[in-house]
């Protein structure tokens, strides 16, 4: 195991940021810490890096106890959301920083910097200042800087959070390819479930200072451990007391055995998709069903028509948490 976290807890005053977190991250993997803002995932990342100290528990990196070790002795590369560039140094100097601190020979530093700048496609910007780079370029520079010291683990805190949507998408695919090339154990924090599902080998869902679920993107998506994970990974609706995904629900215009009868209350077209709101007799809240436009045309139903809903046996579902459903009702009215 590359990173081993045992019973880590952290409080800020009366606020519990992390509560007895236990986690083992295998060597060479790309792991996402996924969760809502303020859920404790960044705090956990900073504790691993030694930028924050845990109130309790232990952190082991590559088998060595790092709990009391200061940040500069952990051999950890850290990439910050807002780049944390050394603004008075050129791009090459930024990347060389960790090597120069270690008093490596000049020739070696130069070669390593060149190699890293090629890796992050910034070789022609070596002599620019960070302020002359775009956000995406700055973050690639920060990544090269963190990789320069050959860290045992690479930690990224919302690395694409400050970039616009298009650059985000490009950079996260690029990060995946880079990881496949470099193979350093990597942990990145994100609140974007799409980012985690697309890039990570393994996802750790963290909420209110606790680990909700650990698994591969497929495991999480197909078998969410609870209501929270289910809701966090994409749009959901409730049907017959279960939290389900709107696109998993099957709709037919004729009564079928085991299907739930309801009435169409609304039809909204969103691009290639049609979203139906269906009021069933068994629930106070209407269920939301999404289906391809072609399927909807085939069905030929509109507002006021009766429909029958059923959930395929293999569709992901979790029991609806009563408190959460109440909350949704409150919002809807």
């Amino acid at each position: 195991m590359s990173i081993d976290i045992q019973g880590v807890g952290k409080r800020f005053g009366s606020f519990v940021a992390l509560d007895d977190v236990n986690l083992s991250l295998p060597t060479g993997q790309l792991t996402a810490l996924l969760g809502p803002s303020g859920g404790g995932k960044s705090t956990l990342l900073r504790i691993i890096a030694g930028l924050e100290s845990a109130d309790e528990g232990r952190v082991r990196i590559e088998g060595k106890d790092a709990t009391g070790l200061p940040a500069q002795k952990r051999g950890v590369g850290f990439v910050f959301q807002h780049y944390a560039a050394f603004t008075h140094m050129s791009v090459a100097k930024n990347v060389a920083f960790g090597l120069e601190i270690r008093h490596r020979p000049k020739e070696e530093v130069r070669e390593r910097v060149d190699e890293l700048l090629r890796l992050v496609h910034l070789e022609q910007f070596a002599h620019r200042l960070p302020s002359q780079l775009s956000g995406g370029q700055r973050q690639r520079m920060a990544l090269a800087r963190a990789l320069a010291v050959e860290p045992t683990v690479l930690l990224l805190d919302e690395p694409f959070g400050a970039l616009d949507a298009q650059v985000r998408k490009e950079l996260r695919q690029w990060l995946r390819r880079l990881h496949d090339e470099v193979h350093v154990t990597t942990v990145f924090v994100t609140h974007d479930q799409e980012e985690a599902l697309e890039v990570a080998d393994q996802i750790v869902v963290i909420n209110e200072g606790r680990v909700e679920q650990i698994g591969t993107p497929d495991e999480l998506y197909d078998a969410p451990a609870n209501d929270f994970v289910m809701r966090f990974l994409g749009p959901t609706t409730t049907l017959a007391g279960l939290v389900v995904r709107p696109h998993d629900i099957g709709v037919v215009a004729l009564p079928v055995n085991g299907a739930i009868a309801g009435t169409v209350r609304g039809v909204h077209r969103v691009g290639f998709e049609v979203r139906l709101t269906v009021q069933t007799s068994e629930a106070r809240e209407p269920a939301v069903v999404t289906l391809p436009r072609s399927r909807w045309v085939e069905l030929g139903v509109d507002v006021g028509d009766p429909v029958w809903l059923r959930l395929p046996a293999d569709a992901a579902r979790t029991p609806a948490d009563a408190a959460h459903v109440g909350g949704v009702v409150g919002v809807a009215h």
Binding site: A71, G77, A84, A85, A148
Partner: peptide, 23 residues
Amino acid sequence: LDPDVERAARSLGASGVQTWARV
């Protein structure tokens, strides 16, 4: 000045004095 700049220097292996002097 973003406090993360100091943290970045520390995580790259700089001591407190080196962080002051170089960053």
